[in-house]
């Protein structure tokens, strides 16, 4: 798999994290901060959808904001669950379409996980199946 994300996060409707997975680095918290800060942009983008009726009302939000080393992509479902994927900037081979498919797979995995009756909505995600899907799209060291 060439999809190499550095960090994948699932954020609940109320903006708290349901699931964050990062590649093991020294400073994992920095990804947490990045994801958290990107929520600003996500919210901005969602709130502006209604104003421009001509906007393509896609669930995929695209590149949220780039930093020097990373690019952050966002995706919001209709139920206001947010997926955030952080990719290294140097990974130029990653095309927009690939990111889209990554999100679609994430969404599918999330829906499957939610259908598990042993999962209470709003809790942290601990499903191993979901984790495996995510690990599959992350950069392996």
């Amino acid at each position: 798999m060439s999809n190499m994300a550095v960090c994948v996060a699932v954020i609940a409707k109320e903006n708290y994290p349901l699931f964050i997975k990062t590649t093991p680095t020294d400073n994992e918290l920095q990804f947490y901060y990045t994801v958290h800060t990107s929520l600003d942009v996500v919210e901005e983008k969602i709130s502006s959808v209604g104003k421009n009726a001509n906007d393509l009302r896609e669930l995929y939000l695209g590149l949220l904001y780039p930093t020097e080393d990373y690019k952050v992509y966002g995706y919001v479902t209709n139920t206001k669950v947010k997926f955030v994927v952080v990719v290294e900037s140097s990974n130029t081979s990653l095309r927009d379409n690939e990111i889209r498919t990554m999100f679609k797979r994430l969404h599918g995995a999330y829906v499957d996980m939610l259908s598990n009756p042993f999962y209470n909505p709003g809790e942290n995600i601990v499903s191993r199946k979901f984790e495996n899907v995510v690990m599959g799209m992350m950069k392996q060291d």
Partner: peptide
């Protein structure tokens, strides 16, 4: 309620975003 929560995720997976 619980079933509705899960069902709606599945059904809206491929829809475009709702306006209002």
């Amino acid at each position: 309620y619980r079933v509705g929560l899960s069902l709606i995720e599945r059904f809206t997976k491929d829809c475009s975003r709702f306006k209002d």
